[in-house]
Simulated assay, not measured.
Amino acid sequence: MEWTGARYADKPTVEVRAWIDAPPERVWEIVSDVSLMPGMSDELQSVHWLDGESRPAVGARFVGRSRHEALGEWETTSHVIECESPRVIAWAVDDPSRPAAVWRFRLEGKDDGTELSEWMQLGPGRSGLSFAIDEMPDKEQKIVFVRMREFERNMTITLGRIKRLAEER
């Protein structure tokens, strides 16, 4: 597990990697289609583009609805902050100048396939986790640690699902 920091203000990160037996262009078709992501994630329930957009470009926005057993249900607006086909797509959750989180997929052609990484940074803007920390400030490090482990586990599952889908064709 690669994550740094134990406090929310440290903007902890986690990154997961997978090698996929498919070219970057094929993997890009999947990771850049945010409408497919609810099928890749157990937490993300639905996604839809805003402003008449239908694919990623810097500045495009989409709404995601998520559900978590302990945190409930919530909706966020994400802003695409990087988009370079077929290499990288990234988005900032809520306020792009002070995001609740930043998510990024990187693709690198390697050994006739693709090395895919999914990376995320928590904070610095407030998120649902902030409310749990507000309620139990003495447990902040444990709360952050547990959530980062959840992200790592869920990202590993997501990459496995992307791998299967990309390699099917």
Results as ranks from 00 to 15, higher is better:
residue 113 G to Y: 05
residue 131 F to A: 10
residue 137 P to Q: 10
residue 83 C to I: 01
residue 120 M to I: 06
residue 92 A to D: 07
residue 67 R to Y: 02
residue 128 G to L: 10
residue 28 W to R: 06
residue 149 R to P: 02
residue 112 D to C: 06
residue 113 G to R: 06
residue 103 W to F: 11
residue 81 I to A: 02
residue 143 I to S: 08
residue 146 V to C: 00
residue 80 V to P: 01
residue 129 L to R: 09
residue 105 F to C: 01
residue 154 N to E: 15
residue 32 S to Q: 14
residue 70 A to I: 09
residue 19 W to F: 15
residue 143 I to F: 08
residue 55 R to K: 15
residue 114 T to E: 06
residue 98 R to F: 13
residue 102 V to H: 05
residue 102 V to D: 05
residue 148 M to E: 05
residue 18 A to G: 03
residue 125 G to C: 03
residue 36 L to G: 02
residue 153 R to W: 11
residue 44 L to V: 14
residue 129 L to K: 09
residue 149 R to I: 12
residue 83 C to M: 00
residue 34 V to K: 03
residue 104 R to C: 12
residue 124 P to V: 10
residue 136 M to L: 13
residue 153 R to G: 09
residue 12 P to E: 08
residue 106 R to T: 15
residue 118 E to M: 11
residue 53 E to I: 00
residue 29 E to C: 03
residue 100 A to I: 05
residue 95 D to N: 15
residue 115 E to T: 13
residue 139 K to H: 13
residue 45 Q to L: 09
residue 52 G to V: 09
residue 80 V to T: 02
residue 152 E to V: 04
residue 79 H to E: 08
residue 83 C to L: 02
residue 18 A to M: 08
residue 119 W to S: 13
residue 125 G to Y: 03
residue 72 G to N: 04
residue 60 A to Q: 04
residue 116 L to R: 03
residue 60 A to G: 04
residue 95 D to P: 05
residue 23 P to Y: 04
residue 83 C to S: 09
residue 47 V to Q: 05
residue 96 P to M: 05
residue 152 E to Q: 14
residue 113 G to N: 05
residue 89 I to C: 09
residue 50 L to G: 02
residue 48 H to S: 10
residue 111 D to W: 12
residue 73 E to K: 08
residue 145 F to M: 10
residue 27 V to G: 07
residue 154 N to K: 05
residue 150 E to W: 03
residue 96 P to D: 07
residue 98 R to H: 14
residue 33 D to V: 03
residue 48 H to V: 01
residue 35 S to V: 00
residue 144 V to S: 10
residue 88 V to H: 06
residue 113 G to I: 09
residue 112 D to E: 14
residue 92 A to F: 03
residue 34 V to Y: 13
residue 84 E to L: 08
residue 16 V to A: 01
residue 96 P to L: 04
residue 150 E to Y: 04
residue 69 E to H: 07
residue 43 E to Y: 11
residue 70 A to M: 12
residue 64 G to H: 00
residue 77 T to G: 00
residue 57 A to E: 12
residue 117 S to V: 10
residue 140 E to M: 10
residue 45 Q to I: 03
residue 135 E to A: 15
residue 90 A to C: 10
residue 142 K to G: 03
residue 53 E to N: 12
residue 29 E to S: 14
residue 55 R to Y: 06
residue 59 G to N: 07
residue 157 I to W: 04
residue 151 F to I: 01
residue 124 P to T: 11
